[in-house]
Design a protein around this nucleic acid. Structure first.
Lengths: 202, 202
DNA sequence: GTCTATAGCCCGATAGAC
DNA sequence: GTCTATCGGGCTATAGAC
């Protein structure tokens, strides 16, 4: 208690900090090796949090995976919302999405890889596909509006328009993170915006 | 050659048949549960081939995974080539690709899921990203030609044009296989062709 | 809440009969 | 080539001291 020899004490005070460490460290490991390829001892080593502490905060490994999933989707959703004021045109909203993806790929590739790759290989059941989460539904709303306003080609429905538009940036993200694309996406983001808009515009 | 009395005999004669059974059964399992989520006993049960027989044909589990990878890439490449005569326009080649993806999603979803999802979660090291394999390189060649011929917008390089075009069909495939898209891709393939061509055309 | 130690389980890979 | 039986190892999750 009163003993404060070094700053080390602090670490034991805040459990939230440990939870956060575990989530970040294991998200990184899951992205690199897949859910089943990561053991609890791996997480202990990478996070610096002991087995006991991990199990005191997460019921089991699967629960931890679900928390990571929710955390990441929320993070992406918040980032997208923070870049919008609410009165953008459909075209502008979509552009913001593409910019965000391009910048995340370069600034936080772990998070982006998780978004793109983690869902699949359904070792953990019941995770909603990333493309069916809030931020993507949000885009769909705007695409409905775009169709109603007549700025989008009318032979497609909003789902097709959405997948077409987002497919371009998301595939660019995949190729960049697989090392196929040498150039940072931040350099080519405007070309991607133009390509994907041309694909769906009226 | 020598006549065989009953069909049963054949099974023990041909080891290739077992190899094939193992590859098909484990590809399906890998797609469903991920590499690490599938045990050898699982494969034994699903394929009907015993542990010993599996290890006599594949050095270890990782080698099996690599054989599946190679088999699948070859299969896709062959399918693509079989639909081409060699004197199509760039636009036609690309259309053939999109059609193939759309039809595979409906006819052989396991194979298509493998193509899309399996690479990631690199439990097995040294697998070339699916987007960096023969069929995709082949498309890139045509896109170079398209740029040279001036039918594609000239501010993009062939890699960007390629990822843009293929991104549309591949994302449609993802969403369809995740259950987000209700309609079979065979129904919307022409819209996808039009969208993706509009994205890159001059 | 947090730690270490360990119980109990199942896996990958092999051995040895056929 | 193919089978069954099994070994050693490493995993998840828990127990019990602090």
């Amino acid at each position: 208690m009163a003993r404060i020899v070094t700053g080390l004490k602090k670490r034991t005070i805040n459990p939230q900090e440990k939870i956060s460490k575990v989530i970040m460290a294991s998200r990184k490991l899951f992205v690199e090796k897949g859910y089943c390829g990561v053991s609890i001892p791996d997480i202990v080593e990478a996070s610096g949090v002991s087995t006991g502490a991990i199990y005191s905060h997460f019921k089991d490994k699967e629960t931890l995976a679900r928390r990571i999933h929710a955390y990441t989707v929320d993070e992406f959703s918040d980032l997208l919302q923070s870049r919008l004021t609410g009165d953008e045109s459909v075209r502008e909203v979509l552009k913001v999405f593409t910019y965000l993806v391009c910048e995340l790929v370069e600034d936080d590739p772990i998070m982006m890889k998780y978004m793109l790759f983690m869902q699949h290989g359904g070792a953990v059941a019941g995770l909603s596909p990333i493309c069916d989460t809030d931020p993507f539904r949000f885009l769909q709303q705007h695409l409905r509006r775009g169709l109603a306003e007549g700025v989008l080609r009318s032979d497609q429905d909003f789902l097709i328009a959405g997948l077409t538009y987002t497919g371009v940036a998301l595939r660019a993200a995949e190729l960049r993170m697989d090392g196929v694309l040498q150039e940072p996406l931040t350099v080519i983001k405007d070309i991607l915006v133009e390509n994907s808009w041309n694909a769906i515009k009226a």
